[in-house]
Nucleic acid binder design. Sequence first.
RNA 1: GCCCCCAUGGACUAGCGGUUAGGUCACCACCCUUUCAAGGUGGUAGCGCCAGUUCAACUCUGGCUGGGGGCACCA
Length: 476
Amino acid sequence: MVTVRFAPSPTGYLHIGGLRTALYNYLFARHNKGKFLLRIEDTDRTRYVEGAIEKLIEVLKWCNLEYDNIPIIQSQRLDIYKKYVDELLQKDFAYRCFCTSERLEEMRKNQIAKKQPPKYDRCCKDITKEESEKMAKEKTFTVRMKMPSEEIIFNDVIRGDVKFHGSLIDDQIILKTDGYPTYHLANVVDDHLMDVTHVIRGEEWLSSTPKHIILYKYFGWTPPVFAHLPLLLNSDKSKLSKRQGDVAVEDYRDKGYLQEALLNYIALLGWSTEDSQQIFTKENLIEKFSLERCGKSGAIFDIQKLIWMNGEYIRKLSIDELTNRAIPFIQKAGFDTSNFDFLKKCILLEQDKIKVLSDVPHLIDFFLKDDIIYDEKAMQKVIKKEGTSTTLSTSIADILKDIINVYSQIQNFSAQEIESETRKYTESKSLKTSQIFHPVRVAVSGRTEGPSLFHMLELLGKEKVLLRITKIIDTL
RNA sequence: GCCCCCAUGGACUAGCGGUUAGGUCACCACCCUUUCAAGGUGGUAGCGCCAGUUCAACUCUGGCUGGGGGCACCA
């Protein structure tokens, strides 16, 4: 059975690149009716972050990437790793290293200064077993794996055959002085113990794969199939990182990107179908995903396309669903959200315009509050007509006064009714519709852009409309 | 410095020897329209370079250039 895993380290947030890795693993598992497991790689105590695991799990849940196991936590399995390290020591595939980190650092500095590749000098490699046992009792030590001087070739599903030479690779530390294993050891041991069949991970791991291959060999285990995904990039083509924009999945969530849109967009960063389909349901992705159709080159994370796609998904949401999802954002902006039906009507009028959910409060705020803000430019351009004759300005006031009269007469203040009465008035005065529509719009909403005018007036209600127009006339 | 990976318009990509090099985002124009959007139609823009193989290279091979990743008691 196909078994894959997502193995993040809990650094405090889920990186968007990590999410892509998780997604591809998930899709691959579901497509093959296999298992998708979660493993937390927290073997670095110096990077321990309070609450990071919980946060990670919460974000994964928000993304709807459900895993099939109780998450494996590496820091709780120290005895297991120790057992395997001992096995390697016993078989002479590894050795204790008593060098201090100061010495190693010094050595590395010198090597770099001499333009040599930084590499351990194997100072402790030839200490006899007896000596090593003895020293282990009084000194702290790490354990290093022995890299054989041989050609290491492995097949990567995405990249084909990749070749390294063992002689160029360091004797990697597999067990630290604090008793914790390093990534390489823990990763290989756990993947084996969890029966992982396919390792799908980022390209940054490609060059340490030979170490893993050798570990599998030393243990006598069959290595999994490897697939190294191209990296996600900043706009300057460097590895996607903080500093150049948001990289945490929760940032996107908090800005109002839909989980469906984020995943859909991210799925397309490094994978595509032959017909270049853009919009996929999750089921669709599961059905069509394959590692063979993954690309090899890094992909720039382009927010523009994500924004477009998010809008696409928002437009497809039912109005109830959209309202529910927008409510937290409206609340955050300080508005009362108890009147669901009213909010629904407001949002419906703006649905086509919403790119991210955090747009919603601003788009509908003039429905929700009485002291609306009048956009200065809009006022100048539409109401005050700066630079043109005062007679025109007067006529706008007159028009608005007439409109008040017209609207006061309307019994059934519906969009249809308002429109027909407005048009009737326009004709009777031989005015252009724009001479009426624009000033009314600005008067009631404070801005030039907005929803369909008459639907907006209906929703606002006769009382507010008359009040707001009156208020504007007073300023003229 | 060493090792590895990669290379189609501004971005994501399709292509797997013969195509008017296709799609999506962005951009521009037009249409629709009371505004802004949305939607529709059309458009600008691309195979990094040099050899080789071949009747024929975006496609295969080699080199170059460019970009990226890795080289921790981090993952």
